[in-house]
Design a protein around this nucleic acid. Structure first.
Lengths: 219, 219, 219, 219
DNA sequence: CATGAATGAGTTTTCATTCAT
DNA sequence: TATGAATGAAAACTCATTCAT
């Protein structure tokens, strides 16, 4: 008689863990490509290398898979925002944040698109998160920016809009990738294009805030 | 002498015209809310005040309705971009364009969302438009910006990214409205919020380009 | 005030007559090509050069159109059979009948196919005709053949089967035309193929009945 | 050691095999009765004793069911033709072939009707088979008949027409069964009628070829 | 753990037919 | 006569989910 699940790791055996991960990966691709309704658990399960039935052994329903994917990216999506250091140099802080966000767009465009999709459709499943966690976080960071403004470190601007602008511009390169590709023939995976994009956005924002763009620190 | 159908307006009788419009209106709302797959022609037809069969009398298929909606907004979506006047004053031109785009986001958020949705999903139906019409238009406007830069009128910046930045920021307020509402409690329909948003975006961009924000012209 | 219908010609005005004919022509082609269920009154009406609504002004329903087509060909289909002359020379009579049937197959293959279709599907609408008119006619002609046999003019054979054989072989060239075309590359519209076919069938049957094939009468 | 599915029989488990067979049986009856368009997968599934959804679990579409049925009968339909032995006695060979074909008409009238239906509608799905496999086979058998003719064993006749005649007459008793029943009150399932039919057809053809009908070999 | 089998609810689409003019 | 507009019923699928093993 063989024990059902290894109790290491939150009650999940190693194989279960691996399969959940596979499912979430496949689901992220599927949902971000087709939206919630357009996605099928059949395709997800195949992409994850298992049968539909088996997928439903791990998650009770399509909705549950979606919720799991969403929450699995949410943190990664909000986290870099927490890094904004009130005591840091505004220029470096903002530049770092833009770079980090752009980096996420380059590395995890599907996550960005999934997030965008969810909000486009009214954010039914994450209104909670947005109205509490995110709202608080934004309030906190707005205070930081306010402090910078009050200290005369940056040009006055309504803080939320600065934040929205950073989000909008950086995520745009992931969410509207097909359009960008159609127009420029390139995407963020191209290192040159990435650098050019980063420089343009950072330059515009920093200058817009009355800051000078810090010199590139050699790696 | 007997008149069968009024041949004004592309061979459509008045009732046909009205019904088509109703359908497109309802369809825009539906598709922008639920995405292509999530939308149902049943709901669209009800919202348009007619039977499903009758809707299918006007459009042969769901796909056809979607295509019609998409093309009906495409022009409105790309048009203001054409207004950028090479001979105008950069500050006024850019400010006007930002305001116009923001205005579209306020007035036709569904159109913005539908467009975003289409691109998020890979823009399968409009790659053509993007790769030709839009690409050419962007090239043309990039030349304008380049001229401004070369003439020393604005700070150097890679033109496409300036364009993308304007698109990203202005459309963000329509596409991510639920998030913005969750965080700020407001949306662009609030005139105060609209003005504040406009000022923030324009201010950031214009300053970022080394321009001074032009004084508000009293209406 | 204008009288509704000219009372000449069974209550049908000239234009009505023409339209009915057009409809029946188009319907024959449609039904014979697609079967009853596969046919659509939309296609029929277009082929007849009028609107669906107008077609339904002439015939109350699809079924009615079908019934009309069927009955319109039925006579033509059974008529030549009546010609078999009891007092004629068996060889000439049979040969003439085979030629006439083959001629019908060449000239009106759609009628043949429609008839075949109807019977393939159980002859629901013409069982009556078959069980009375046709049965009586067959009985009558069997008697003729029987007389020929009894008179020693032709080899003994069960008369119905001779009749069925003639029907089967001649109609086969219309009903299975695609197969015949696939195998031989030809059809009955080719005069050489027609002659060859006629000679083969007549030759086989007449010889089979112990008759000599009559010399071709020059036209 | 656990067995998932029996891999005998092309990877189909026993239950799958059984269900596929049931579906094909029911489908053959349905399609042969109503034609492709008239048939409904709903009726087929009920006749097969399962839900519509389950049928669609086995075959992806109505078309696929039809294609499967068609190909499942095609071989059975063409096969006996291959038996015609070039070295055999013409009279016995032809007589055997006629009997075999008539037998098929008696035993599998639905298959005959389905085949007829497909060809009546232009043979869209089997033109390939007809133009290659069948054409070659016919050419081959024509050569056999030609040899018999050249050897003076049978009366001269264009070989294809002899073949068509055999096909036409024998299949007629299945395809036009309702007509035959209406006229004679009998069908091929009646052994007496079968024998009488066979004798008539064979007699006519053999005599027509200048052969004498071989004595019946006592079983 | 894993899967094949089965199903019901929902969705698009087709089409004969009716209605109003 | 003729037609455009409208509809309901039926049909083919799709797909998440359940069942049994």
């Amino acid at each position: 008689m063989r024990r059902r699940t290894d109790k290491r790791n939150g009650g999940l055996s190693r194989i279960q863990e691996k399969n959940r991960k596979r499912i979430l990966d496949a689901a992220l691709r599927e949902f971000s490509s087709f939206g919630y309704s357009g996605a099928t658990i059949d395709r997800i399960s195949h992409a994850a290398g298992m049968s539909k039935s088996n997928l439903l052994y791990y998650f009770p329903s399509k909705k549950a898979v979606y919720a799991a994917v969403l929450s699995s990216i949410l943190d990664a999506w909000l986290n870099p925002f927490r890094m904004l250091d009130p005591d840091g140099d505004p220029a470096r802080e903002i530049e770092a944040y833009v770079r980090e966000k752009l980096n996420l767009s380059a590395k995890f465009p599907e996550a960005s698109r999934l997030f965008a999709n969810e909000i486009l459709q009214g954010a039914p499943r994450i209104t909670n998160v947005l109205e509490h966690d995110l709202k608080d976080l934004v309030a906190e960071k707005c205070a930081v920016i306010k402090k910078w403004i009050d200290a005369g470190k940056i040009r006055p601007i309504e803080p939320v809009h600065l934040i929205f602008t950073i989000w909008a511009t950086t995520q745009h390169y992931a969410d509207f990738a097909p359009q960008i590709r159609a127009v420029t023939g390139k995407d963020l995976n191209d290192p040159v294009f990435f650098a050019e994009t980063e420089r343009a956005i950072s330059g515009l924002i920093l200058t817009g805030l009355g800051l000078t763009v810090p010199d590139k620190v050699p790696a």
